[in-house]
């Protein structure tokens, strides 16, 4: 499912040929004596689907929370959408979308009310909201559910809706923290189709996951072990390097190095 243009883009980033939309330089976060994220550095190009892989407790969520401005890095620098994550977190927040592992729309609001709420919070123009809501629901095939309370929807639908809401304001980057937790493979595949559509619109996707089949869908993956980056490359290259057929096997070999216990 890799697209040649994306691969070309990635190569350009690696060669330093154009400005990356996300860049981390020695980003570190310690909690007391515990180093959750240990000096990670990477760049993500525009329109890329960047997978952030690791076992539970490897530091994925902490790294992502720093990039979103939810946590202050202990040391190191980070830039998101061209803004410094520490000093310009307000600007960062305006240009990103975020979806967490916990399903996070308001359960007792209707579908359209949820869309309207977040569109309002992100400052989408009042007149645009209604027609774009209808268009979105039509694309998702959710028209009949426009007036349903979100709590009445099945989990797979909720997640698709949460993702659509997180990119409703057309952010430059969307951060997805284990977005497909708890749904069946078929629903996961549908969810990934939405991710591809977003990437086609030019939205950069930064996604953490521990499902290795999902790692295959990413343009480029970064494998985190014990807070450090163990590998960062195209899935194809990693498989070649380890001489295996799937990302799952790559990950098994990597994860053996882990000393930290899952939380």
């Amino acid at each position: 499912m890799e697209k040649e243009t994306d691969i070309e883009n990635c190569k350009k980033v690696l060669l330093g040929e154009f400005e990356p939309v996300i860049s981390a330089k020695n980003l570190t976060k310690t909690f007391g004596h515990f180093t959750a994220v240990d000096s990670i550095s990477f760049d993500v190009a525009k329109g890329e689907i960047f997978g952030f892989l690791g076992a539970n407790g490897a530091g994925k969520t902490t790294a992502m929370r720093m990039l979103c401005g939810l946590l202050k890095p202990t040391s190191g620098k980070g830039k998101v959408a061209g803004y410094d994550i520490e000093k310009q977190s307000e600007q960062v927040k305006k240009n990103i979308g975020y979806m967490s592992q916990k399903f996070s729309l308001s359960e007792d609001l209707r579908v359209w009310e949820n869309i309207r709420l977040y569109a309002g919070i992100y400052g989408v123009h009042e007149r645009e909201i209604a027609p774009r809501t209808d268009e979105l629901l039509r694309q998702l095939g959710f028209e009949s559910e426009k007036n349903s309370l979100v709590k009445s929807l099945p989990l797979g639908w909720k997640q698709k809706l949460a993702f659509s809401v997180s990119i409703f304001h057309n952010p430059k980057i969307v951060f997805l923290d284990e977005p497909t937790g708890g749904v069946d493979p078929a629903a996961r595949r549908q969810f990934w189709e939405l991710i591809y559509q977003a990437a086609d619109r030019g939205i950069t996707v930064f996604v953490t996951t521990h499902y290795m089949d999902e790692a295959e869908y990413c343009n480029r993956v970064c494998i985190l072990v014990d807070g450090r980056i163990e590998a960062i490359d195209l899935p194809r290259n990693l498989k070649e390097q380890f001489n295996v057929k799937s990302m799952d096997e790559v990950f098994q070999q990597m994860a053996r190095k882990a000393t930290r216990k899952a939380d």
């Binding site: 990103i96 975020y98 967490s100 916990k102 729309l105 919070i121 992100y122």
Partner: peptide, 13 residues
């Protein structure tokens, strides 16, 4: 508890 607070904290609000 529902996780919506996290979304709000990431938002520009």
């Amino acid at each position: 508890e529902q996780g919506t607070m996290e979304i709000l904290l990431v938002s520009p609000m």
